[in-house]
């Protein structure tokens, strides 16, 4: 759960006297002071070091879909409590709190939209909802997003942002990996394109299923990507992890990522891939 710590570090801890509070933030990577307005204009990336701040699912929708418009589907799917799970909190209470804080029903928003006039089926995960974790609702919504691509014979785009499977739904969370991957096999059989976009973080059960199965996989710079959690790895091997381990750059270096793309180029890049993968008979636009 390293990413929780990282998220906390993002919150300003040091105040600067001369600028009114709330108008600025500090880059967790280069420590530069950035005006909030400047950060927004820069799509929540640091103008100095290109650190990508985490943004919401609605921000991605605005960023990459034409007119920022999503025809949202399956909004009414909500989580049950199949295990009657309780740790320090009851699972349904966790869900309620997350819903209240995010205005979302679960950790993914899905539907139909357009990228440069090309109709796509899209799902965008949201880390703010229980760490973007995948339970039955996320799995089902991703599955239906793939099914819509299949039914409508349109490309699929999934933007992931998640710590992995949702422990509170136990084995049923694990099975969402199989459910989504099964449908991706079918999508692949039909030669429909799937662009997988990884943001900070994309790890564990999601990384070991649909996030890794794109025809191409692109990621924002500096994202935490991988299968096992860093604390678990450290405990297992009893040694320090190398600098930049499990970053986007590491992932690409080892051959598991096609492209690292700055947020401002995300739409353009997806659009271009969709053009190359459009499968039209004449082979030209």
């Amino acid at each position: 759960m390293e990413w929780f710590k990282k998220a906390r570090e993002g919150i300003i801890s040091q105040k600067k006297k001369d600028i009114p509070e709330g108008l600025w933030t500090k880059c967790p990577k280069c420590s530069d002071i950035i005006y909030v307005r400047q950060l927004e204009e820069n799509l929540s990336t640091c103008p100095n070091c290109e650190y990508h701040f985490r943004i919401k699912s609605s921000d991605y929708i605005r960023l990459i879909l034409d007119e920022g418009e999503l025809e949202e589907k399956d909004q009414g799917l909500i989580s049950g409590d199949p295990l009657q799970f309780k740790d320090s909190k009851k699972y349904p209470d966790r869900i309620k709190t997350a819903s209240k804080n995010t205005g979302l029903n679960d950790a993914v928003v899905s539907g139909i939209g357009k990228i440069d006039d090309k109709i796509i089926s899209i799902a965008v995960m949201d880390f703010a909802f229980i760490g973007g974790s995948m339970g039955s609702v996320v799995g089902e919504k991703i599955a239906r997003t793939i099914e819509r691509a299949i039914q409508m014979r349109i490309p699929l785009v999934i933007i992931s942002c998640t710590g992995g499977a949702r422990m509170q739904e136990g084995i049923l969370s694990l099975m969402q990996m199989a459910k989504t991957s099964a449908l991706l096999a079918r999508l692949d059989d039909l030669r429909l394109p799937y662009i997988s976009v990884l943001t900070n973080p994309t790890t564990a059960g999601v990384m070991a299923s649909y996030a890794s199965l794109g025809d191409v996989i692109i990621a924002e710079p500096g994202a935490l990507l991988g299968f096992a959690g860093q604390r678990v790895i450290k405990q297992t091997i009893r040694q320090d992890l190398p600098e930049g381990f499990q970053s986007s750059e590491f992932f690409q270096e080892h051959g598991f990522l096609d492209k690292i793309v700055h947020r401002r180029d995300l739409k353009k890049t997806i659009s271009l891939f969709l053009e190359y993968f459009s499968n039209d008979v004449q082979g030209s636009a």
Binding site: M177, A182, A211, L213, G226, F227, A228, F256
Partner: peptide, 26 residues
């Protein structure tokens, strides 16, 4: 569990598992 190690991550533990899951459906 799948091995949680530096080498396993370098060689794509997530990719290997994901691909198997998908391919086993075929």
């Amino acid at each position: 569990g799948a091995y949680p190690g530096i080498d396993a991550e370098e060689r794509g533990q997530a990719e290997a598992i994901a691909r198997n899951i998908r391919e086993m459906f075929r």
